[in-house]
């Protein structure tokens, strides 16, 4: 099988698996909506305040939702041994892993984009910045999946990896949060946001090129640990 066919086969397989277990799609989405609903309840329903912090709320919630969904990235494949087969296959692990990450983003990241405009309206964000919000989510959430995959790959062999995962992954999310949140805030006040968008694109390309390598190395390490 050629490399590109293997790559798309991995994506296809993961998408089919996700569609058969719909709760995996619904959970991060519901979490995202719930967290955003909690903010007005906690802060108080003051339209100006909510509007001012809406970009931050949406982005922090997206960060947490992405982090919670990470566990499903390798867990079932790790448990049933299909991950071992992928590592043993003649294709480079990093490419196959990239396929898995893309499939995972299509399932957990993309739905966030669909509900985000609705939630932005809930929080009273001005209409003209909705486009920028979607653009930052489109560029930023794949980075969250890519960086998160490193953390999951390191902790997938552990029984209680959940807490440690957030400690590993959240500090690395900081640049995305800063530029994305800032872009939306600037757009809110009608300023140009080209710089932030360009940097987000740069971060995405960098993560796309580099992240699969440590993920593959970490998965091999987790496998060895499991066998010994």
């Amino acid at each position: 099988m050629s490399l590109s066919r293997a790559f798309f086969a991995v994506i296809r397989r993961d998408l089919i698996l996700a569609l058969r277990r719909r709760s995996e799609i619904a959970n991060p989405l519901l979490f995202f909506i719930l967290v955003i609903t909690l903010f007005p309840l906690g802060i108080g329903a003051q339209p100006h305040l909510l509007q001012a912090i809406a970009p931050g709320i949406i982005w922090v919630s997206a960060l947490l939702a992405a982090m919670l969904s990470l566990d499903s990235l390798f867990r079932s494949d790790f448990d049933d041994g299909s991950l071992e087969q992928m590592i043993l296959s003649p294709h480079p692990t990093s490419v196959l892993v990239l396929g898995k990450i893309i499939a995972h983003w299509l399932v957990t990241g993309l739905p966030l984009l669909i509900v985000a405009p609705l939630l932005a309206v809930f929080l009273g964000m001005p209409n003209h910045s909705l486009g920028i919000l979607l653009l930052t989510l489109l560029l930023g959430t794949p980075v969250l999946s890519l960086i998160g995959a490193i953390g999951v790959a390191l902790t997938v062999g552990l029984r209680r990896g959940g807490m440690i995962l957030s400690l590993l992954v959240l500090p690395l999310y900081v640049p995305v949060l800063i530029f994305a949140g800032n872009a939306v805030q600037m757009a809110d006040s009608g300023l140009p946001v080209d710089a932030q968008i360009n940097i987000l694109i740069a971060i995405l390309l960098l993560a796309l090129a580099l992240a699969p390598l440590p993920v593959a190395a970490a998965l091999k390490m987790s496998m060895c640990d499991n066998i010994s």
Binding site: L154, G157, G161, L167, P171, P214, M221, S228
Partner: peptide, 21 residues
């Protein structure tokens, strides 16, 4: 994060590799 990851993995040689990555 580095210290926590090292503490979480029982086999210390594996843990060292995880920490290095």
């Amino acid at each position: 994060g580095v210290i926590g990851l090292y503490g979480a993995i029982d086999d210390k040689r594996t843990a060292s590799r995880a920490v290095a990555i």
